[in-house]
Design a protein around this nucleic acid. Structure first.
Lengths: 155, 155
DNA sequence: GGGGTTGATGCAACGAGTTGCATTTGCCAC
DNA sequence: GTGGCAAATGCAACTCGTTGCATCAACCCC
């Protein structure tokens, strides 16, 4: 994993969510506030179900549909991004410092970030050869990390 | 999309499924036979739900749990591979001629295959720099294809 | 501060996929 | 052909996430 979480920047961004919603004619509700507070305390990756659970701690009446709909809105605002983990479950990246993809080890379950520089080899090739503009934030590369590759001869 | 479906090879492979199950002490049941027949008629990618639906055509008593469990077994046998599409839904690749990844255009929904040669830039870099052995069959690159990139200035 | 517009909520039902468990049945040995 | 063991099935219940719709309430205007 790489470094994450510059609290000063994050608190500014979360504080501005309300205004950014209003600019678009959207509303600031207790439920949204609750979710944003949970997100502000969250570092890195988290699943939708886990977010629902954490919202319920502060407000036991939290319903999944509201949380997921709000997450959609927040993604449009750019304060988070979703992708699908290896098991197909939704995963949210809170306030990505920069666009990045992921490495997932199917043996140990570990994850690592891939940044633009590392991915540029593939992404550049696709752009040049295919005119395909890839979205790094949706990229998850599944495989085996060094340690797990050493342990297992195969399978 | 690239060329697919060499019927001679496929019929041999499907024909051998029964024996390959028996070799492992697994059983050949009417339900499995039904699923294998559906798969033998299937070209390329298909979702789990669609497979359940097609199995029900021949056998209306088909239950999802049996289909999904059999798909797991067939994946272990190597006659198919699953991955997760952009929406997180399961997708199965029937009898991949070779290991390949995918390109998905989030604008038009089109998909294209990426073969080993194309992916080698990224996969090779990950192997060299990180000792991470990537699994091409699980690689889906999301982005925008040439036509959709041209149409949209942004967003 | 009060009213109206319309965006947001909560509910209920749904779809995809998974899992535990009792029952069935394929397959091997005799 | 028969019996027994273990694999496979089907059911029911569950999780995660989505959607349609009636109701509620944030926000803007006066």
């Amino acid at each position: 994993m790489q470094r994450r979480g510059s609290t000063a920047v994050e608190s500014n961004t979360w504080g501005s969510v309300r205004e950014r919603l209003r600019e678009r004619g959207l509303r600031w509700t207790p439920q949204r506030r609750n979710l944003v507070e949970v997100l502000a305390r969250t570092d890195g990756h988290i699943t939708g179900a886990e977010l629902v659970a954490r919202c319920r701690v502060a407000d036991s009446a939290t319903t999944p549909s509201t949380v997921y709909r709000t997450l959609d809105v927040l993604e449009e605002l750019g304060v988070l991004q979703h992708c699908h983990g290896v098991d197909g479950r939704e995963e949210f990246h809170v306030m990505p410092a920069s666009e990045h993809g992921h490495l997932f080890c199917k043996a140990c379950g570990g994850t690592w970030d891939i940044d633009d520089a590392e991915a540029s080899a593939l992404l550049g090739a696709l752009r040049d050869d295919r005119d395909f503009v890839a979205d790094l934030s949706h990229l998850t590369v599944v495989g085996r990390c060094r340690q797990c590759a050493e342990v297992a001869t195969r399978g």
